[in-house]
Each structure stands twice: as C-alpha cells, then as structure tokens.
Design a binder for these strands. Structure first.
Length: 103
DNA sequence: GATCTGACCACCG
DNA sequence: CCGGTGGCCAGAT
C-alpha cells in the first residue's frame, strides 16, 4: 500500500497512538475525520505492508478484543506485541478498555 | 459494473 | 456482556 494513498489519514492517527495504549476502530475513524467509517479502518490495516512503521496492533474492536478473519496465529502475534508494551489481557483474551484506551 | 465480503460500530433487547 | 440488525464503503470476483 503506497504511503500516498487515501488511507494516509488513518495511518497518521494510528501512528499517534502512544505505546502501551490502544484505540478502537471507530475511534480511529473519528479522529481521522471520518466518523462512522470504522470499516474503512479495517480495510486500511489489512492492506498495510508488514514493513510499515504503523503500530497496527494497537487498534482493536469496541469490545476490547482482537479481531482478525479466520486465520489463526497472527491474532496471537498482535497480542504478544501488546503484552510486550505492557498491556494486560483479561481471562477472555480481551483488553480492559477503561484502562488502556487512548484518550 | 453489479454483487459479495469483511481486522466494524451503534443500537436494541 | 452477548447476539442480531442495519448501515457504510473499499476491494475482490
């Protein structure tokens, strides 16, 4: 995905998420000036290059859970990345949003 | 170019 | 908190 694509707004927002904090898709969409377009964020992240500097792993869904289509292990990978930044998961494999959501 | 699909969300129950 | 519903929109087919 080229840097000059129209997803650039979203990447900019994601890049500004501090370490050890998370944001929801809807939140990113809103901060990017596209309220209600949470789905676009998902598409933006899914087309993101692996070598990108964007901390895509800090974006989770509104229930505090890691979303990913069927494929198994990359979901675990995202969790490991967050845990290495100090984010603690609950028993259900979810993040305590009131505590870790970026404001 | 019509239709389907999806890293979703708000709203309701 | 969980499940279903409707809506939005970019890619893939």
């Amino acid at each position: 995905m080229p840097e000059n694509s129209r997803y650039r707004r979203f990447y900019k927002v994601v890049e500004s998420i501090p370490e050890g904090r998370v944001a929801t898709y809807g939140q990113v969409a809103q901060l990017a000036g596209k309220p209600g377009r949470a789905r676009l964020v998902g598409h933006a992240l899914s087309s993101l290059e692996e070598e990108s500097d964007v901390p895509w792993h800090r974006v989770i869904n509104a229930r505090g859970e890691i979303s990913r289509r069927g494929l198994g292990d990359s979901e675990h990978y995202q969790r490991v990345l967050l845990e290495s930044e100090g984010v603690v998961f609950t028993e259900g494999g979810r993040v305590n949003l009131v505590r870790y959501q970026w404001r």
